[in-house]
Computed example of a mutant assay.
Amino acid sequence: MRNSTRRNRNIGTAKQGFGQNNKLVVPYHAQEMKSFYERLEEYNVVKRTINNHTFKFVVEKTRENSFHACTIDDLETILAQIPKDHYGDLELIILRQPTRKEENLKAVWGRLIYSYEFENDYLPAIIIEAVNLEGSFKWPKKLSVGGQKELERLKEDGHKIVMGKRYFEAEYTIENIRATQLYRTLPHEFGHYVHYLDLVIKPEKTDEEDDAWEKRWNDYHRLPTSEKESFAHSYADTFKSKLETKNLIPFDRILDLDKIKKDGLNISDFKT
């Protein structure tokens, strides 16, 4: 006898929608028109003038066992070496505490946001994420060419990567995370921003300025990810090489407890 439940082989599978509402995703707040990385909780703002350019360091309070690997003094030291004309309108450096779900689903060392909503204003921002030192990162063994290169970069940063049965894995340490975020992630995100400045902001004005700007914006965001990543990696590699040649990096972590207190920050967000 024919079994009617076998008529559709997709019954009870993802193809028919089964379990789609149960997917683990970073939640979107419908009543708050902000991206997840713009929804900051408890934070303090510290202003620093670097090369006559004011930066706002927004430091979000961390959870237990999570820390900001880079101090403001660390970041200021690197920002001072970036050419001033590469700053553009970028003022915000966000030291952010991701949620546990974000750490599992959207873990990144940092990111560039072209228009970040902060205190009723919109400005470009670079985000550097706090990391839970009780965690570890895992990479699948089947890696693209880009993934293999990234794994080599992490090894150069000092991460002790071991091969497990299914993953490449490395434990987090504050020193290795700092090396990645300070010497590579920060200049990498600036590389994206310089690419954006060159293609969208700097071209000469025309009589159809608004239409021309919108076209440049759309053209830039249509570029293949591989092309944008290649530009940012090249920028970061060149920048890092110059600082190494000048013996400016690596340098010890700048953890000035008195200065942290004076800035109204929590020492526990940085100290391990």
Rank of each mutant, 00 (worst) to 15 (best):
E102K: 09
E103T: 07
K106C: 11
K106T: 12
A107E: 10
A107C: 13
V108E: 08
G110D: 05
R111Y: 02
I113N: 04
I113D: 01
Y114N: 05
Y114E: 08
Y116E: 05
E117G: 08
F118D: 05
N120Y: 14
N120G: 08
Y122R: 11
L123M: 12
A125N: 02
I128C: 04
E129P: 00
V131S: 00
E134Q: 15
G135D: 08
S136Q: 07
W139A: 12
P140S: 11
P140V: 09
P140K: 15
K141A: 03
K142D: 10
K142Y: 10
L143K: 09
S144L: 05
V145S: 11
V145Y: 10
V145E: 13
G147S: 08
R153E: 00
K155S: 04
E156T: 01
E156K: 12
D157F: 15
H159Q: 02
I161Y: 01
I161G: 03
I161Q: 01
M163I: 09
M163L: 13
K165Q: 04
E171T: 06
E171C: 00
Y172E: 02
Y172P: 05
Y172S: 01
T173L: 05
I174M: 08
E175G: 03
R178S: 09
R178Q: 10
R178K: 12
R178F: 08
A179V: 08
A179Q: 13
T180I: 08
Q181T: 04
Y183W: 13
L186N: 07
P187V: 07
P187E: 12
P187S: 06
E189C: 09
G191M: 00
G191K: 03
G191I: 02
Y193T: 04
Y193H: 09
L197I: 08
V200Q: 11
K202Q: 08
K202D: 04
P203T: 02
E204T: 12
K205C: 09
K205A: 14
T206D: 05
E208K: 12
A212F: 14
W213C: 00
W213P: 00
K215I: 15
W217R: 03
D219T: 08
D219S: 08
L223W: 01
S226V: 12
S226N: 02
E227P: 00
E227T: 12
K228R: 15
K228G: 02
F231L: 05
F231R: 13
F231E: 11
F231Y: 15
A236G: 03
D237A: 14
T238A: 14
T238F: 05
F239S: 08
